[in-house]
Design a protein around this nucleic acid. Structure first.
Lengths: 224, 224
DNA sequence: CGCTATGCCTAACAAGCGTTAGGCAGACGA
DNA sequence: TCGTCTGCCTAACGCTTGTTAGGCATAGCG
């Protein structure tokens, strides 16, 4: 029962740098070709199966290469996952800002909130596996990966604070409800939508956005 | 480089029943002693780490036994998980019904909705690891486990359909928002609360329930 | 005293995990 | 034509996963 080691006589001669390659992830933005395909596949798997069940070999298979070859593009599984979730936040952030930017300059808080909700939902339910991955898989990500996108997430949530604040200033929120609660209500509802939304179902995304908005913001009429 | 198989000569002689024990989970309700401790530990781990990262050995260690001994109480990991998530749904269902039952008979839709929200939040954020486990870990559970509690979940959601319908009949919902959307908005918000709520934070549970309720239901004043 | 059942342990199984070493085929520049 | 680089492969490392076999010590009962 000799240890397998030593019996095989593996060739170990290269004294050259032990870390052979792995381009260390361009950090910045683009990612093309194989590197991009790897991110795409990881995003889809993360969205569908979560972090632990998204294996390096499954990613590789989806791309059409073998498990070990992944490491010629990224230094580790977590580096890939990190890039995917950061991209997911970036995408939804941009989508919401784009929806807001497309509005006429004099758009009121109701229209702006609806646009933000629509942008978020379109990104997470329809356009981007990255965004849905970063929402659905986030909870059970390793701590360091979660912390690696904390800033991005907080920056994104700032949009929602602002939009809710606008609604509050316009008197569209109940007097006795905190802005925090309203923001958390809305973000929770849109983030959870991935758990029940199915394309082609009774509620199209536009209708969800419209109904969510009208449920929370209604012209206040002082009665007392 | 001989295959490891065959070289070991494992003893396989017992022709007696291959499945030695595993009481097959009493299905019903109680679960006491060691079996209960195993469920408790599993619920906590599921809540904190999710399904894949909740290992049989980790459960065993939390209970103070070794990995293999788990199988003298349950036939498989999934059987334990199944029982935990079912119990989680049962607990929150009961909690919400208890809150509603504690209300005066003439309580209106606003008070009833607030009670339902409070019951759900208390169960998932404060009282029950089972409930939070069944909410947080549900998404990435194996298909058969998910389906094993589909009925229980649908039964539970029926309460919310009813409460939202009451609010609609009382004219507390915007005319152009569907009841489905309002229910999904609310359930999403309360289910997502586990992702941000921290005990002792700015928003106590009662305040969350109250603010969520007031954000969605406000006395309608026909203006048109 | 002997019997059986309980409740746990040790040790292992096969499979799968992230990761690494080294080789090799083709492209490209000198 | 030679050398280097790129992009993938095979094969393995060490470890962990869910699960099972078998043993042993105690308890209760005849």
């Amino acid at each position: 029962m000799s240890e397998t080691t030593g019996a095989d006589g593996r060739r170990r001669r290269k004294t050259s740098p032990p870390k052979v390659d792995a381009p260390a992830a361009p950090a910045g933005i683009p990612a093309t070709g194989a590197a991009k395909q790897i991110l795409d596949a990881t995003a889809r798997l993360l969205r569908e199966k979560g972090y632990e069940a998204t294996t390096v070999r499954a990613i590789a298979q989806a791309v059409g290469i073998k498990g070990g070859s992944i490491y010629h593009h990224y230094p580790s599984k977590d580096a890939i996952v990190q890039q995917v979730v950061n991209e997911g936040v970036r995408v939804v952030h941009e989508a919401v800002e784009a929806e807001l930017a497309a509005l006429p300059a004099d758009a009121g808080p109701v229209v702006r909130l609806e646009a933000a909700i629509r942008g978020h939902l379109l990104s997470s339910l329809q356009h981007s596996d990255y965004t849905s991955a970063s929402i659905r898989a986030f909870t059970f990500l390793p701590k360091n990966v979660r912390e690696g996108c904390r800033k991005a997430r907080r920056d994104y949530e700032a949009i929602w604070s602002e939009i809710v604040a606008e609604a509050a200033r316009a008197g569209l929120l109940p007097d006795d409800a905190s802005e925090d609660a309203v923001r958390l209500l809305l973000l929770g509802a849109v983030n959870w939508a991935g758990e029940w939304y199915r394309p082609g179902g009774r509620l199209p995304i536009d209708k969800i956005a419209s109904d969510f908005t009208r449920s929370v913001l209604r012209p206040k009429v002082s009665r007392k």
